[in-house]
Amino acid sequence: MSETRLDTLALHATACDEPFVLREDEFRLLYDRTSRGLWAYVYRLTRDSHTADDLLQETYYRFLRTPATYDGDLHVRNTLYRIATNLVRDRRRRTRPTVSIDHDETPVLAAAHDEVHVTGERTDVRRAMAQLRDRDQQLLWLAYAEGSSHQEIAASLGVRANSVKTLLFRARQRLAALLPRTTRDAGPGGRS
């Protein structure tokens, strides 16, 4: 979807009596570009693939049903992440987490991860991440897994851009505090 096309989304949504702000072909393009990263983000926060599927569906539904004007692909992406973040938060409020952090993967993914995550340090980091509060997980994931800028993180999480750096620093501190001493000394992942 081009930026020109994005600029006309609001007009498209209000001028026509369509149920969604995008046509199907436009939606498919957007979905193909954003869905996998968004799913991974929601999955890392919920640690359940079925929940991630549901929240992904809900995220796009709300996006499609909300007329708005977007300033480009990044704006659309940040909006999707913002919706997903809010949905994860709402879901967490409604249901208490019952999944153990030691079994936080679906069987398929767990098996795959066991093959890949051969070092104890990496598993330690994953476990420590799972123990962090949602906001810290979101910050760390967006910054260090997605590579989002501070402005993008702010837009995705609904925080002020100039506070992202401080929030990230504190999140890293809390993560480090949860790591075993051996992992902490080597740095997360033990790669350094």
């Binding site: 990496r122 980091v125 991440m129 260090y144 590579g147 740095g187 997360p188 992942g189 350094s192």
Partner: peptide
């Protein structure tokens, strides 16, 4: 650097 490597 280590954290980014792991999460990425």
């Amino acid at each position: 650097h280590a954290l980014v490597s792991v999460l990425h």
